[in-house]
Design a protein around this nucleic acid. Structure first.
Length: 291
DNA sequence: AACCAGGTCTCGA
DNA sequence: TCGAGACCTGGT
């Protein structure tokens, strides 16, 4: 049983993580290279698999002072209403490499499709765990059979993922180091990667590198900002609006706003069948078609 | 059968 | 600096 406030459905089903699914009331995921099963009964979360408490605590950011954070973002009336409606929603601290790789695949794809792409990579390149699931593959594991990545249905994101994996493997990019510096430096560094723009950089910063002020603006968030606050324009404008409005924990506010605009996804990821696809995409980045 | 998806890229004003 | 358009592909 956990000794901190946590609502599993809200936290695991709100689109910040892609490998969790709920089956017969039990959430199943992979954390720290182990399959983990969790169940919530009468508000209490039970850990059904053997896993170090410290691992769970770190993953669910047990060290976050939820009362303080909720109080601070509740300075905004609308967010305050969401905080009382979605009590127990937490940000998750993901592994930086897994987070970066997952979100580089997330551009212009639905949550279900992202789940499929990620699960596809895991079953092909990830170490098989006891229990049947697979670990998220290391950069080395992916690059070892780099050509096979092209048949994972990633489309034009394929080349982006391989470039990221190469830089991480070669030590050219040290993701964990970006925890130490400030938010602007972190985002600036991430955006040098192909396939990582404003939004994906903010996701990586928020979901894996402890920059709680990061405020990813996707289409859903863009909708709320416009309809509720009349904020619109460029990405920078909306991000600055959020920073001023929601403060240093803007990232938490973002998660509540995201939830308010859509439903949770709890279904099991469906791995696309292994048809070979993605032929020229790896070498042809998106852009205007030259005829 | 279209249409859209937790965006990014490149180009032109 | 900003707005357009194009874009792999699988869900719905």
């Amino acid at each position: 049983m956990l000794n901190f406030t946590l609502d599993l459905d809200l936290t695991l089903g709100c689109g910040q993580v892609f490998r969790w699914y709920k089956e017969e009331g039990v959430w199943n995921g992979v954390v720290g290279g182990r399959e983990v099963r969790l169940r919530q009964v009468d508000g209490e979360v039970e850990v059904l698999t053997a896993v170090a408490g410290a691992t769970i605590d770190s993953y669910f950011r047990a060290d976050d002072d939820l009362d303080e954070i909720y109080a601070e973002i509740s300075a905004d009336p609308f967010v305050a209403s969401l905080v009382s409606k979605y009590h127990g929603l937490r940000l998750i601290r993901q592994d930086p490499w897994e987070c970066a790789a997952s979100y580089i695949l997330a551009s212009y794809a639905s949550v279900r499709r992202i789940q499929g792409m990620v699960e596809s990579l895991c079953t092909r390149f990830g170490r098989r765990l006891e229990g049947g699931r697979h670990a998220f593959p290391s950069p080395e594991a992916i690059l070892r059979k780099g050509e096979e990545v092209e048949s994972c249905g990633l489309g034009y994101r394929c080349g982006w993922l391989l470039e990221l994996a190469t830089k991480v493997r070669d030590g050219e990019l040290d993701l964990a180091r970006l925890r130490e510096g400030d938010y602007d430096e972190c985002v600036g560094e991430l955006k040098r990667l192909r396939g990582v723009g404003d939004k994906v950089a903010d996701c990586i910063a928020l979901f894996s590198l402890d920059h709680l002020q990061a405020f990813p603006v996707d289409v859903r968030i863009g909708r709320v900002l416009r309809s509720r606050y009349g904020a619109m324009g460029t990405y920078a404008k909306m991000r600055n609006f959020a920073a001023q409005r929601f403060g240093r924990y803007a990232g938490y506010a973002q998660q509540f706003l995201y939830l308010s605009e859509g439903e949770c996804v709890t279904g099991r990821p469906r791995v696309p069948s292994t048809r070979g696809r993605c032929t020229r995409a790896a070498s042809t980045p998106p852009g205007p078609r030259r005829s």
